[in-house]
Write a protein that binds this DNA or RNA. Structure first.
Length: 205
DNA sequence: CGCAGGATGGGCT
DNA sequence: GCCCATCCTGCGG
């Protein structure tokens, strides 16, 4: 049992590929898992992603290879976790891709809840299950993702991503401009946001 | 339903 | 000192 679970964890080679747009699309339907304090699983299927492609991308924290204490983990090897704090209240969870010192990251913007839904309800304090994980800040609250997970490895035991039976066919992958980056000039228009067509948990429809 | 405004604090120009 | 890769509430129609 343990062994078959391990086999479903995405391997390093999934993340270290160079084409981040392929990875951002392929992450749709994969299962993001964070164990709770009692060891039970809290998880959801990824249904919305965005690619941030530094050094060219003016929307990226690592634009022009800007390198600070805050964004340092985005320079780690593919498969690392980049978590940052935003708007004084929220965290955002990103998957680092490519090789060391290439700061490509995929922001996970929405999940469809799967395991540990009762724990998510307690953490989110919302009456409506549609609000549990339908946004980048919401899903971090629901899964308990905060700065403690920054620069963790998705091949470790604190947080990881698994293969799943939630299959997303090519015709169900939609793309469009990214959210909340109007300042990024010509990069604001790039169609680097991906989502599962008609999925209820996508943050904006 | 849509939209405006407030919450709230760390990072960076 | 200003700017956020956001969320929630309350108000108007």
């Amino acid at each position: 049992m343990q062994e078959s679970k391990e086999k479903r964890k995405l391997p390093r080679e999934f993340y270290t590929r160079h084409d981040i747009l392929v990875i951002a699309r392929e992450l749709l339907g994969k299962l993001l898992v964070v164990p709770a304090a009692d060891g039970s699983r809290v998880s959801g299927f990824i249904v919305e992603t965005e690619a941030y492609i530094a050094p060219e991308d003016k929307a990226s924290h690592a634009y022009n290879f800007r390198r600070t204490q805050r964004n340092e983990s985005s320079y780690s090897i593919g498969g690392a976790v980049y978590v940052f704090f935003i708007y004084g209240m929220y965290f955002q969870f990103n998957v680092v891709t490519n090789v060391i010192d290439v700061p490509h990251v995929v922001l996970i913007r929405a999940l469809e809840p799967f395991e540990g839904v009762e724990i998510m309800r307690e953490r989110r304090k919302t009456a409506n299950d549609k609000n549990l994980t339908s946004g980048p800040g919401k899903l971090c609250i629901a899964l308990g993702i905060d700065r403690n997970l920054n620069n963790e490895d998705l091949l470790g035991e604190k947080i990881w991503i698994e293969e799943s039976d939630f299959k997303v066919s090519g015709k169900n992958v939609m793309s469009g401009k990214r959210i909340g980056i109007d300042y990024a000039e010509e990069f604001a228009e790039k169609p680097w946001r991906f989502w599962v067509k008609d999925n209820l948990f996508v943050s904006r429809r």
